[in-house]
């Protein structure tokens, strides 16, 4: 099994090596990076490329490690016992399987995506140490041990909101997706819009990287936002000329809502546009 990138996903050389190491050594891989650089996408694309099933576990601040294994619903059993329901004799009726269990059960090396692990409590990754290492766990209520048939490929994403415990990190591979440079970005756009005109791309890129360089911008637009914006430009039939236009009244790029997600950023950009316009006027 080897991951070589897919038609719809441009993987850099270092990313491929990291993913393949994780696949071969059957160890989890942690993927970090700016929001919108395709961390979650990676798991889906690996699943695509390898033709395996993907099981996604989205982590929230309330998620507990145990929920990934299984949950025992004692309360409904208690309630059923009052109603004289026959179900109560079999305790497994009240055990609902978690995502990890699901992944361990399915055959053919599924991909288990643990999305945004940093959202959970600090102890969360530590609670999963043994389960991810051994790929097995014990169900106390029924006394059975669940063991992975085929060790799943575990991909973990993190947005860096919290530091992860060292013991957990030691067991994983790590990859930091850095923001793509212009060349890689061109490939990415090419993959998404094969028939986009060259000059439009050039002008759009210039605006995009200019916005990213504006000091003090709160939310820098990311790859996924660039893709959205290009999509809008295409549906609206905006051509390169309009983007290039240096008309002082139109210094805010068309359809900027896709790139600037925050009214303070829009204000900031308008202000900068205003200043540069004034400077232009003075110089004339």
């Amino acid at each position: 099994m080897k991951f070589e990138g897919t038609k719809s996903y441009i993987a850099t050389e270092d990313l491929k090596v990291a993913v393949n190491a994780a696949i071969t050594l059957e160890r989890p891989i942690i993927v970090k990076g700016e929001p919108g650089t395709g961390k979650t996408m990676l798991a889906h694309e690996v699943a695509n490329a390898l033709g395996s099933k993907i099981i996604t576990w989205h982590i929230k601040s309330t998620t507990k490690a145990q929920q990934g294994l299984y949950e025992y619903d004692a309360v409904s059993r208690l309630r059923d016992s009052q109603l004289g329901d026959k179900k109560i004799n079999d305790i497994s009726n009240y055990i609902s399987k978690g995502k990890l269990w699901e992944a361990f059960e399915s055959s053919g090396r599924p991909i288990l995506l643990i999305d945004e692990i940093d959202k959970a409590d600090i102890e969360f990754p530590n609670d999963l140490l043994l389960e991810l290492d051994k790929m097995e766990f014990f169900v106390y209520e029924t006394g059975e041990t669940i063991k992975a048939k085929d060790r799943p490929i575990v991909i973990i994403t993190s947005n860096n909101e919290k530091e992860l415990p060292d013991a957990f990190l030691r067991r994983c591979f790590f990859h930091y997706i850095k923001f793509p440079d212009v060349e890689t970005m061109k490939q990415i756009v090419q993959v998404h819009f094969p028939d986009l005109k060259k000059d439009l791309i050039r002008e759009a890129f210039k605006i995009f990287y200019d916005i990213r360089d504006v000091p003090g911008i709160k939310k820098k637009p990311s790859t996924s936002e660039l893709i959205d914006w290009l999509k809008l430009l295409m549906t609206d039939d905006v051509d390169a000329k309009t983007l290039k236009e240096k008309d002082p009244n139109k210094l805010i790029p068309p359809l900027h809502g896709a790139l600037l997600k925050n009214e303070q950023d829009v204000h900031l950009f308008e202000r900068l546009a205003f200043i540069s316009r004034r400077e232009n006027d003075n110089s004339e």
Binding site: E13, V17, A18, A21, E163, D166, R170, F173, F174
Partner: peptide
């Protein structure tokens, strides 16, 4: 490739 691999295995932050 060795650089990429060792980086991924040894650096976690």
């Amino acid at each position: 490739d060795f650089y990429y691999l060792s980086r991924s295995a040894l650096v976690k932050d």
